[in-house]
Every structure is written in C-alpha cells, then in structure tokens.
Simulated scan of single mutants.
Amino acid sequence: MICAIAELESDRHPLAKWYDKKSKDTTRGIMQLLPKTADWLYRDLHYQSYEVEGNPDLLFKPFVNVYFGAAYLKWLSNFDQKERSEEFVVRSYKGGTKKATSKKTLPFWQRYLSVKENYPPRKMCEDGLSPNHAFSATAPSALSVPSSQNINVAYMCWDSRASPEDMEEMWNHPEVLNEWSKSGEKKGKVRFSHDEKKRPYLSRVELKAVAEIILTHHFSTKGLKPTVLCALAEVVSMRFVYGLGPLAGIMGVDYSTALWLYTELGFRAYKVDSVDDLTKPFVSMYFGTAYFIWLSGYEGRERSPQFIIQAYMMGPKNVNFQETGPIWLKFEEALSCYGDIKKDQGGCSIM
C-alpha cells in the first residue's frame, strides 16, 4: 500500500511538493504529506520518532515522510473507531475522509489497484519507461458497453477526462462520430470502453483521433504520423486510460518528465499540475508527443526511428540496439494494427 501510494503521489521523488491553490496548502515528500498533518500526528497521536513539528522540511527525507505517511494510514484504517476497508483508507488518504466515497477519489483508487498489482517486483529502467509490457494485438479492442448484467456498474465517461473543446473535436471526427453513434453515446455522457476488470480504455478509433487532433493543433510542422503515437500507446499502456502499473496514462509519460517538458521546454498547451492530469488522454498524448519530438533531436543529432522508439521506452541513455531489439519488434507489430508499416532498408518509416 505504501509503495503504491508513494508511486502515485510523487512518482517516488523525495523532494516533490505540490501547492493546492484552493486550500493554499503544500504537500511534501514521497508520500505528499501536509506539514500540519505530520504536526498533528506528532503532537496529538504521539508519533514522535522524528521531531517534525515546526520543521516541515524534514518531510523531504524519505524515512521521515514514510513514517508519518504510514502513521496516517494506520489512523485512517480505524477512523471513528471502525475497522475500515482498504478502499476507504486509500481514497481517504487522497481526498480526506469526507471524500472516501466521492467520485473525485475513484480514479485514484483505480490507479492504486493497477500500481499495487505490479508490486513486487517493479522492473523499471532508471531513465525511462518499462520495456516489459507485453503487447497484445487483440486486447483490448472491442467497445464494451453496459449490459443488463452490469447495469449498476459506474462507467467512466470521456467528458470527465477531456475539456469541452477537445470533446467537440472528437465529435467532429467522422470515424469517432460513427463509432459513438453506433454504440448509442450521447453528448455529455460518452462512456469509455471497459475491460472485464472494469478498467477504462480507448478504442483504436478513439486513440487515433486523439493523436490526429494533438498533431494537427500543436505539432503540425513536425511531420509525425499519428499511427506512430498510437503504436507507442499500444506497447506502453495497451490504451488503458490510467496506464499500466506505475506508468500513468495512455502514453506512459511520468510526471517529472511532463513537468520538465512544461516548465523547461515550454510545452504548455496543457497544464500538468499532478500525476492525475496525465491520465487524461489528450494531456498524455500531448506530452508523449513532445517527449518523442525531443528525443528525435537528442543531443543535437537527428536520430533514427529505432533510437527514438527505444529511447522513449527505456530512456536515451539506455539504448542498446542489440539488447532492445524486441522492443522495436513489439512497436512494429503494434504499428501493423493501424495498417501503417513500411519496410525500408530493414527499418520502418515513422516520420
């Protein structure tokens, strides 16, 4: 539980901090604790192994932060003198006890389950995305909609994960309009497809439309094919809205990378205030595309398609063509699902 929450809250960054404009509070450290929460645990509940009261910067130390994070989780597990479920504890940790059943904390709980499922072990490359995700050409693919047997299941809607402007673009896309009309979707209540575990994902038609819209509006001069971005999403996330394991969103870009692209490189068409923003398809696609383009000119050199794809998956410092060949093959397999693979001198045309 602690590992999964730390993954979601800070992407494992000990010095992470986030300012909430509404409450005007700043959470700190690997488990994103409020200083006033740590002070309360220290003063009133006598968790005093670390003298954190009046010294909020101590929360940037992993042992201190995890100590008070675990103490808070323990308190939540017996809130109001009642033994609480794991779901209550996790959702309360994110939004407070009053929002333990609110739809606002449901996405956090769903992502928590996905991350927790991948512990242990966590096989991640130090400087990039995980190369260990298996690609399936068949799942998920078909649009799954509620039936009489699961009519009470809460299906996540597109409208909660995209802006009105982006939704209008989706409705104006001919293939999306055709797919949504056939499945009976209505404006304001467009459901995502869901797998048997009730995890929301994008259909291939939806994914391709998102890629096309992002490229048209923000990267039209780069000559990048939307099918390339779709193939990356297939390999990295299997098109799941929340991503796979610790990788957030359809493009699997971690929060620190997205924040760097936003603050340092000026990619600011979409805000990225928290990891949760990266579970929005348009936001994830935007920053995934920005990262892809940055890699294409890594260290001031024009890079080959094989380098870009493998650097995206493993980090540019970890590219080794002899060892990472299987990743390129998975990418080619995914690309073929979109009917856009052209062999050329042993490679693949992606730009």
Rank of each mutant, 00 (worst) to 15 (best):
I151N: 11
R122F: 05
F68Q: 06
S148Y: 11
R91C: 08
T97R: 04
A162Y: 05
E117A: 06
T138C: 00
L73I: 12
P107V: 09
R122P: 00
A139H: 14
E86S: 14
D80K: 15
N55P: 04
K123Q: 11
P146S: 09
C125K: 10
R91S: 06
L113S: 03
P146H: 08
A71R: 10
V66Y: 04
G95R: 09
E83M: 12
A71C: 06
Q149F: 12
R111S: 07
G96Q: 12
K103P: 00
V89N: 03
D159M: 12
Q149D: 14
F63E: 15
M156H: 11
S85Q: 13
Y93D: 08
S148W: 05
G69L: 12
G69S: 14
E87W: 07
S136C: 01
S163N: 10
S147A: 03
S85V: 02
P56Q: 09
Y67C: 09
S114I: 07
A137Y: 03
S102L: 08
C157N: 11
S102C: 02
F108D: 03
N150E: 12
L106N: 01
P56F: 05
S163W: 07
D127F: 08
K74W: 05
F79H: 15
T97A: 14
Y155W: 15
A71D: 08
W109H: 03
Q149V: 15
P140N: 02
R84Y: 03
E83N: 10
S163E: 13
N150K: 09
W109Q: 04
A71I: 13
H133C: 00
N65P: 06
N55W: 04
W75T: 09
K103Q: 14
H133R: 03
R84A: 02
T138W: 02
P120V: 01
G96Y: 07
N152S: 11
Q110K: 09
P62R: 13
T138R: 11
Y119E: 04
P107D: 03
P107E: 07
K98Y: 11
V115E: 03
E83W: 05
Q149H: 11
M156A: 13
M156F: 11
C157G: 06
A162K: 12
P140L: 00
S144D: 10
Q149C: 07
P146L: 08
K99V: 00
K94S: 03
P131Y: 02
